[in-house]
Design a protein around this nucleic acid. Structure first.
Lengths: 160, 160
DNA sequence: CCAGTCGCCGGATATTTATTCAAGTTTCTG
DNA sequence: CAGAAACTTGAATAAATATCCGGCGACTGG
């Protein structure tokens, strides 16, 4: 069950897509097709459409955001609705949220893979995110900020 | 500042759009254009695109959902990520949520207009929604279920 | 009254994404 | 092994939505 035509199987391709999306700032399925081609993986836009839907990748403004989360749970796409402010400090990130939603926000952050966090603590309207170091703290803050900057939309429309 | 061409000003039209979306099960901008036309309001799809974006109407699966919420706060679009189960009983609706997210869910339900609710009480993973009567309870449960049935997406792309 | 601005709109078009259809493969079953 | 059933994919196409551009009426300061 591999090497259909372009040499990689579906799982590998989808993993590669996630990587490419994070590295380059891809924002369209055509762009993904191109980036894949550069890596020697040739697929059609239709396939990318299906892949993104299966991966649950979202679009923030006009960029894809590859931060997969545990399936069946909430992902970062809910953050814009709850997060009010984000302040990185040392190796921490202080996230201010709407009242009562801090618990939910921290629970979401815990489940999003790709974030370099050690742990989170939730109060009533504040979440403290502890990261390994200043760099990862800033990076994390930046990502959350990106997500909150614009409305997000699911890529794909997997209903079943 | 009114009656540009079709006889109604922008605000009136947008309000009408909200009504039409709830009444009929509109799912495309063309459909909205048509429904408006039936009411004697003639506008272009481009205008509807802008209106929906400004109104913050969402799309659930292939239907628009007109449940406006207080601007600047979370709307029902976050519910699919948090809600696990919905059970109407008498004049109440018991909503089971992921652990720690009940507070957020109840806070969202409180702010969504168009829901006939008297109040909500949140535990750790359960929200009790109290409605005026059995009918409104079932209706509310149905709406929440609809929202959770499929992934939602923002209509429009208001970034600024 | 006139010129400049501003918000709103329609028509046309571009952009982006989803889906349909028909293969090519693999897997399972009897 | 033959045949059926299930996946996966690409090409083409449809569908849906966003945007560009030009115009128009209202309003404002001079």
């Amino acid at each position: 069950m591999e090497a259909t035509k372009s040499g990689v199987d579906k799982a590998t391709r989808q993993a590669l897509i996630l990587t490419l999306i994070s590295e380059k700032g891809l924002g369209t399925q055509q762009g993904v097709v191109g980036a894949l081609a550069d890596k020697g993986v040739e697929v059609a836009q239709a396939t990318v459409s299906r892949d993104l839907a299966e991966l649950g990748v979202l679009k923030v403004g006009s960029k894809y955001l590859a931060l997969p989360h545990d399936p069946g749970t909430a992902g970062i796409e809910v953050l814009p609705s709850f997060v009010v402010g984000i302040v990185p400090a040392q190796n921490q990130v202080v996230v201010h949220t709407r009242d009562g939603t801090a618990g939910a926000v921290s629970s979401v952050l815990d489940r999003v893979r790709g974030l370099r966090t050690i742990g989170t603590i939730a109060g009533q309207d504040t979440v403290l995110v502890v990261c390994p170091g200043p760099y990862s703290a800033r990076k994390t803050a930046g990502l959350i900020a990106d997500v909150c900057r614009a409305k997000t939309r699911p890529a794909g429309n997997v209903v079943g």
